[in-house]
Nucleic acid binder design. Structure first.
Lengths: 340, 340
DNA sequence: GTGAAAGCGCTAACAA
DNA sequence: TTGTTAGCGCTTTCAC
């Protein structure tokens, strides 16, 4: 019998008679045959793999998003390769290059910044579909799923301002030379910029003067975050409320607050992005911004998969709704003389 | 110029004159050339990829172990493909098959059970190196990195017994028909079996009668865990101390304890495996078994990589040391009449 | 130092 | 329904 016939039954394509099929199957079994996916991919041009580049796989936010992606992928018969960028543009480029080299069918990326997106344009140009998760890129017209970061930051800040706070800090993870914020022009990650913008807008609307001075950048690791938090809390005019841009940051801030003998919310109120599991078991439990993380991952994967399956349509920008879960970490500011 | 020469410079092998090299590089740049890793892998037979199959990527334990693996892999120039088994043997088999099909150079697996390991023997037989993470398989002689689960369970149980507890529960995630434990013969995961064995041994040594009745299985999801915890805590002779087999389980148990108006450690003492980040911020902070998770991942990857790089030696079984971090979740049992 | 040719394991197009 | 052939993009061997 010819190779081709055997290939037909093993590959599950074309037509073969039952007798031959049985024979081939038996022989394959006996020889312990394993199809070589590589060779298959090379001829078909498809690998059945979706490449995913996230900022930090250890951040529960991305963990959950990746599960959303994986579930959608599995349901459609795709597999997922994960790569970490560590929020570094160079690592992101390397990861993209690697995945393209592996001939993934499509890519999902959480772009770490908007300045340098040549590698993302390259993907697009190479004909492979690309979809963006959590962060939009104004200049790149591809499927994108995000939340309304500006709006949600405004709502969270408003909760703090309405509780009477005038010294509100925003701590975020964006890579920065120094921790101090200057202006929006220095921020190259869309979600971060929108959040800061929303935060500042509400502060100003509430009549707070120079709210910029409480915006702190560079909380990119537990160590960095601790340093930021310690600086913030040891200032004379220390903030009476803090908004944290992810649960990893909030956790470190919470630890430092405790460590300094301060109480939440009596001395410092706290709100964080992401409804991480631990936020409901602290004393007090933490008020959180509950982004639809799993849905974010699932939706972006579905968008990509539909395209992989041949759907052609203009690129879509999905913005998912977000809720705030009010728990016990927000109170009025302390009323000591220094704070009046 | 011939294909072969171009390939030599692009592939970085063989010898080419500098003039030609420069020309090829320029042309490659102009044509926006991307090497096809697939084709390269097909001829060389190596993919530069390590396949990793873990039980549950959302469990921080595996998240950290995977980071250890990734760091070691990157340092040696390997990439990692991740697959989830969800602790289901069928999914594990499918994942292994997929990764072998993708021609990974080697595999790291956290075997979900020891009964059916034919797929793991197949890997070995296919000539690809295999290494085991966190769980040993007595019948499979391959590189393995674990901790001494029996010993560490004994030490944790002893802390509880020494504090005076007589009704100590052990809650674990192994897949089971019913939550109730019968005997070690029903447990097919080495680490789980060893832990239960260690737990029961110390209980018996402490003169506790029938400690088996407080061993509960099947805490495989938050929902299942809550159900187990609720059953446990509503029994007349409810346990005065609980040992949880991972941080996900401990978190749910902690929530249920709170929810029922009980206090830690006054009403119930709690110890958990894995020093998850949240365990230090609860009130009280939780006493934990601090497995060297990152090192576990790093070591197993290094063992595998050395083999991939040609080292031949008998298979190694590494057992890493483990510490217990005593915090505030263990106290004496309550002294109400019902508990004396 | 360079070129020609074979082949990795598979699928696709066509012919029989 | 089955067999033949070509070729995916690369590396390797061997001759020049």
């Amino acid at each position: 019998m010819s190779k081709a016939t055997a290939a037909r039954v093993l590959g599950g394509y074309g037509v073969v008679s039952d007798t031959i099929r049985a024979g081939v199957l038996a022989a394959a079994m006996a020889l312990d045959y394993r199809p070589n996916e590589l060779a298959r991919s090379m001829t078909t041009g498809k690998s059945g793999i979706i490449g995913v580049v996230v900022g930090d796989i250890e951040n529960p936010f991305f963990g959950l998003a990746v599960r959303g992606i994986s579930d959608a992928a599995r349901a459609a018969g795709f597999n997922v390769i994960l790569a970490n960028s560590g929020e570094k543009i160079e690592a992101e480029k390397a990861a993209v290059k690697l995945l393209i080299g592996k001939r993934v069918d499509g890519l999902i990326v959480t772009p770490s910044e908007s300045r340098d997106i040549s590698h993302l344009r390259d993907i697009h140009r190479s004909g492979r579909p690309l979809a963006l998760l959590d962060r939009a890129l104004p200049d790149l017209d591809v499927d994108t799923v995000t939340v309304d970061d500006r709006d949600i930051a405004m709502r969270a800040t408003r909760i703090l301002a309405n509780a009477g706070h005038r010294r509100i800090a925003y701590v975020t993870a964006v890579d920065a030379q120094r921790h101090q914020y200057r202006d929006l022009g220095q921020i190259y990650t869309s979600s971060v910029r929108e959040r800061i913008d929303g935060f500042l807008t509400v502060c100003r609307d509430a009549g707070i003067d120079g709210p910029e001075r409480y915006v702190r950048l560079g909380a990119t690791s537990p160590e960095q975050t601790r340093s930021v938090a310690e600086t913030l809390l040891s200032e004379t005019d220390r903030p009476t409320a803090i908004l944290a841009s992810d649960s990893l940051i909030a956790l470190e801030i919470f630890k430092i607050i405790r460590q300094r003998g301060l109480r939440v919310p009596d001395d410092v109120s706290l709100i964080t992005f992401h409804d991480a599991d631990w936020t409901s078991v602290t004393t007090p439990p933490i008020t959180v911004i509950d982004q639809p993380v799993y849905a974010l991952g699932k939706s972006v994967a579905e968008l990509l998969i539909r395209r992989l399956e041949g759907e052609t349509r203009p690129s879509e920008r999905l913005v998912l709704p977000t809720a705030i879960i009010e728990r016990g970490s927000v109170g009025p500011p302390p009323t000591t003389k220094a704070n009046v």
